[in-house]
Design a protein around this nucleic acid. Sequence first.
RNA 1: GCCGGAGUGGCGGAAUAGGUAGACGCGACGGUCUCAAAAACCGUUGGAGGGCAACUUCCUUGUCGGUUCGAUCCCGACCUUCGGCACCA
Length: 814
Amino acid sequence: MADTEYNAPEIEVKWQQRWEKDKLYKVTEDPSLPKWYALTMFPYTSGALHIGHWYAMAPSDVAARFRRMQGYNVLHPMGFDSFGLPAENAAIKRGIHPRTWTLQNVENMRRQLKSIGAVYDWDREVITCLPEYYRWTQWMFLKMYEAGLAYRAKAPVNWCPKCQTVLANEQVIDGHCERCETLVEHSAREQWFFRITNYAEELLDFKDVEWPERIKIMQRNWIGKSVGTEITFGLPGNDEELKVFTTRPDTIFGVTFVVLAPEHPLVEKLTTPDKKKEVEEYVQTARHRTEIERLSTAKEKDGVFIGAYALNKLTNEKIPIFIADYVLLSYGTGAVMAVPAHDERDFAFAKKYGLPIKTVVAPPDMPSGELSEAYVGPGNMVNSNQFNGMPNDKATEAINDYIENKNFGGRKTSYRLRDWLISRQRYWGTPIPMIYCSRCGIVPVPEKDLPVALPDDAEFKPTGESPLKYVDSFVNTTCPQCGGPAKRETDTLDTFMCSNWYFLRYTSPGYDKGPFDPEKIKYWMPVDQYTGGAEHAVMHLFYARFFIKVLRDLGLIHFNEPFTRLFNQGTIIYLKQKMSKSRDNVVTPEDYVNKVGADTVRAYLMFLGPWSQGGEWNDNGINGISRWLNRFWSISQTGAVIFPDTSPDDAAELALRRILHKTIKKVSEDLEQFRFNTMIASLMELTNYLDDVRTAKSVCRSVWKEAITSLLLISAPAVPHITEELWERTGHPYSIHQQRFPAWDTQLIIDEQITLVVQVNGKLRDKITVDASISEEDARRTALGLEKIQNFINGKEIMKIIYVSGRLINIVVK
RNA sequence: GCCGGAGUGGCGGAAUAGGUAGACGCGACGGUCUCAAAAACCGUUGGAGGGCAACUUCCUUGUCGGUUCGAUCCCGACCUUCGGCACCA
């Protein structure tokens, strides 16, 4: 075969067409093979693929290809997450219909995705904004509703009074509207929720998954379980009572005031007339603050006395009631008992407003006067009546018992997790399939009437309501129960609802008797390996876990967790920043694909650094990969005829075979563990070594052929096009991507000679090459006899000698 | 602010059941080829000092401490930086 120049773009297009024509990557269920579901998070249809998308998709394709070569039946699908705010913004800004904009982007991105050369089975593509998909998203909502897991309640939204619009958090910049800079308010409105809190306890359990510890920690923190006590305080002169949640019931005797969230429903009722103005002003200010600001421990805690008092039933003391924005209505009961002596925030608050500080848990060095800072550690109880003298952990239980006996409250577990707000006041989303009838109330759309289709003729003006509200033909309908006139729900679903189940749809994309074919689900699910950005650590990955548990409880599926293994790749940066259109630092993959080829871009992205850490795109660095693949091309095509028939040099052949098999092992293990950077490095090393062997012609024909064949096979997942071409050029039958990954010879990779490091007092002083089987006795004798070592130990006393077999000898002298 | 990562040559990074720090690559410098340049190929390349030389000594993994025969790796404190924090997806 002629040694022509490596023309990557030409080869790549040729093979991509051939693979597509032959349906090489078509996947069907095959019960005789072990299945492997390798899933990459599908992209949002933002417009065009940038190198960050490649960074997510190329290495995961390499891992999927490796599994195929290991004999798994691999499902590695791709699709488009295509509902969302940006489509609507494009409509407002440029007058394009969100559907047009989105579907154009799908076309463009699909074309771009194909140039990666991945093993995607495009027959399984899923597009979430198409009625054939969102029909089933709506169906899922109805199932949730029937199960009592969907409900309506009031919740605050970001409201811009000037634009008359609900804003997403990202549209709020420093508390102001991103468009008109008006101060954003938080106002309440009726919206739909999912009862994710019902699953809080089960979601804490990760026994069925192999996930990175940090992601599990983030989800645990998100759930924020805390075991404590709910305690009822009296409200003298009022028939209501006040409930607080605390994790420190042992400090109940140290309570000197109570703090309510500014939004707490009792605030209006309890505020005395003389405090009304001050309280209202404070509530207004709090409305503009974000939760992060409110909870920041750096911010000085402020609040307002509302003029009313609460009664501590254990002490019969009357204590003042404050409101402060560091207390959130959504957590616990929206009210806390303040114990300045034993809580840092309460301490700062008490100091600021001159409130008493009463010590009830004695610190080891109990000061005679007031504490200088909050004491949060353990100690014995003081100033606590019958509980005095007890260690505070014992007192916690005793006080809990006492409270329960007296009916003052009781033990309770609180979660930071809140129910999932799924309503969006937007057009470009899945319509919530509900109907409001003046006679029958809230009525779900019957399954047979699905999908509730998005109307085409909506107007995209920022009006504060979903644009759907103004489409009469959409809103006005008849009640499925009584047949009378009724109105449709105009909120749409959070797009996280779409991504909750797309991976189920991939198993049976055309299925029309349900969201998925239960038989296919049984074969493919759960996902064996999920990969994607860590920015999804909590929300998407958490909601999907919740959703799968719900579907399981509805009897629709058979497993507990959607994603058995999870891996988060890092972020690719360019010019020191995360790539984004607004920063104008987007690297377009096509420019490079057309110049140096997809294989080069794939390999370069892998070579940048550890996949989990991300890295910086550098235009120069890619040259190294180009050079490597050029050498790879040339070496692989070196005709075996230039090598002798019989072994010219047994040692050289053994050395080559040893390095080859060590590389097979290294590449296999690296692929297994997603260490793509070192995999590429070891492939480069093997290539360099083969280059030297070629020059020396030190091996016979068959050894050379074995080396080239193996090199191509172990490189095939990483660089699928060039290896396919060379596989053909070296006389192998199509396709390399249907071959098995080579195994390494465990005997061959054991070294006969090793380098032993000789240290004196832990510092490297010499190295010796010895037989791998050397005894400790021989190693010591050899080491001590070395001239260099003698120079360092002469005249000194040998304290001890540390011997690490196969590694080193350390002589400790004084 | 809270939670979670990461700090190693000029640059990207390699090496952790604690055992040769700097694999592989980029860049730079020198050379071969060329009328010249590009490409390609060969060589050198952590810093400082000593030697004509084969060589050799000391320092070096963000900072400061600790444990250890031995620390990039373990422990404590600090500094810097990146990600998440519930309507971006």
